[in-house]
Each structure stands twice: as structure tokens, then as C-alpha cells.
Computed example of a mutant assay.
Amino acid sequence: MLPYCYADGKIIPWEEARIHPMDLAFIRGYGIFDFFRVAHSKPLFLDHYLDRFIHSAKETYLHLSPSKEELRLIISQLIAKNEMVTGGFRMLLSGGLSDNHFSPAAGQLFIFAEELIFPSEEKYQKGIKLLTLEHVRPVAKIKTTNYAYPVWHSAIWKENGAEDVLYHRDGYISESSRSNFFIVKDGELITPDSDILEGITRKHVLQLAGRFSERKVRLEEVFEADEAFITSTTKVLLPVTQLDDKIIGSGKPGPVSLDILGKFRKLEQEHCG
């Protein structure tokens, strides 16, 4: 954690940030968050992240006091105050102190500046393993703080040498616990269109792709795919070369995945330029 955060309506040392123990964020696990990266002291794709955060607040009936421009100013001040060159920002809006300990109330806004830990270069070169898991994330289209199930299940991933999971239900896949999921078949990029959070990295990957389809994707299609990968703010594009005990494609990161990753890295540089 970097030294300064936004809490209680002002910029303060992060260790002074406080939240009431009866806030719905604690007693019901109710709140929203978003996370974006900073490179060369500039937030990457900030408009998209702020729009999603504001939309999440509206859809979860949580009052967000600062406007989009005020949020942008707070973030700029935090970058300067923390002398931040690279890292990430976590925006969190809690469920608030509810009269009946259940209904959404006026929550607290926190914005924390953080250091980033990226996956190792070896994972980009060799790919990662995912485990299938029958599950659909609650209120999947909104970035809520409800990650209880995957946090609990994560010990099983580690026991099986996996990086994460791939959710599926009724024979169709949706997403990973913190990432969007893609397959490549015969040169076409394919990604699920339902029961997912529409990620910002996902959005840009689709714009960079030559051919793509957003549709329902059967689990069997993943095992038959030529390539697969996950995308997220902190992973960017991470090739998936194994699902459960089955190898995907050649068992190595494929040309389409690596081409899109290269284009995305270039897009980041242009955005920071």
C-alpha cells in the first residue's frame, strides 16, 4: 500500500482510514469496487473504469457523492501525493450503515493507491492451468465485493497447481474468478456474452481482434480450442494451456494470443504517451 489514500472525504495516510464494523460491507459483504492501473504516472483507460464504477454504484443502489470529474481530480491528487509512477488504484464503496442491517445505505468511499504484482514472465511464456468449477458469480455484470466463494475455493487451486478457475453452468462457460475468458478456433476469437463482468481489458482486446464472436460457449469447445487465454487489469492477457488435466491446443501460448498481447502492450504505450 502506498502512503496516502482517500477516505472520509479527504486525502489521509492510509493507516488512518476507518470503517464502522456494522457497515454492510462487513456484516453482509455488500459493496462495490473497481481497480485500474497507473503507468508513467498516468491512469490507463480511466474514463472506462470511472464509468463502470459509477454504473455499479447506481445498479447496487449505493450513493456515490463525488462526480466523475471530482473522482478524476482525487485520483490526480493521489498520484502526485504518492509520487506514483506505476501501480494501481482500488476504488471501494461500502454498503453503509443500514437501519435494518440489510438494505443499502449511504456508504463510505475509499480510494487506495497500491503497488502491483504481475504474474511471472514464465507464465506468459508457458501459459497457465485453470480448474473447471460449476458456479456463476452473483450479480455477474456488476463488480461487487462478493468474492467469498472463490476466496474459499482458492486453496484447492493451489493444491492442484492451478492459477485460477473457469466457471461453468449447464454446460456453458462464463468467466474466471477475476478475469474474462477467451478461446481461439480456426483463427477466430470467441468469448462468452452472458453471466460475465464486461471487463475493460476485454473491451480493448475485442477492439484489437480481427475476427471475434461474443456468444454462448460450451465447455466442450474449450477442450477443442486451438488457444485460450484470460484477460484482466492486472494480468493483461495470460495464455491458458491446460484446463483440469487436459492440454489446450499445442500446450503452448498460441500466435493469436501473443499477437493480441503485443498489440495491447502497444496500445498501453500510446495511451501513456
Rank of each mutant, 00 (worst) to 15 (best):
M1V: 10
Y4T: 03
I11W: 09
P13R: 05
E16F: 10
A17P: 07
R18M: 03
I19Q: 06
P21C: 10
A25Y: 15
Y30N: 03
I32N: 05
D34K: 05
F36H: 05
K42W: 10
D47Y: 08
D47M: 04
F53M: 06
F53I: 10
I54Y: 05
I54L: 08
A57Q: 07
K58Y: 13
T60S: 12
L62E: 03
L71K: 07
I79N: 12
I79E: 12
K81A: 10
N82A: 14
T86R: 12
G87T: 13
R90N: 01
R90C: 02
L97N: 07
S98L: 13
D99P: 11
H101C: 04
G107P: 05
Q108C: 03
L109M: 07
I111W: 02
E114Q: 14
E115P: 05
F118P: 00
E122G: 08
K123D: 10
K129D: 11
K129H: 04
L130Y: 10
L133F: 15
L133D: 07
E134F: 09
P138T: 14
T145W: 01
A148F: 13
P150D: 07
V151S: 06
S154N: 02
A155Y: 07
W157Y: 10
K158W: 12
K158L: 12
N160A: 12
G161M: 03
E163C: 08
L166G: 13
L166T: 05
H168S: 03
Y172K: 00
E175G: 05
F181C: 00
D186L: 02
L189W: 10
I190W: 04
D195E: 14
D195G: 06
I196R: 00
L197R: 01
L197V: 13
E198F: 04
I200D: 02
T201A: 06
K203V: 04
V205H: 00
L208C: 03
G210D: 11
R211L: 15
V217H: 01
F223E: 07
A225M: 09
A228M: 11
K235E: 12
P239D: 15
P239L: 14
D244Y: 11
D245V: 04
I247E: 15
I248Y: 06
S250C: 09
S250I: 10
G251N: 08
K252Y: 13
P255S: 15
L258I: 01
D259F: 07
I260P: 04
L261D: 00
G262F: 07
K263T: 07
R265F: 03
K266L: 05
E268T: 08
H271G: 03
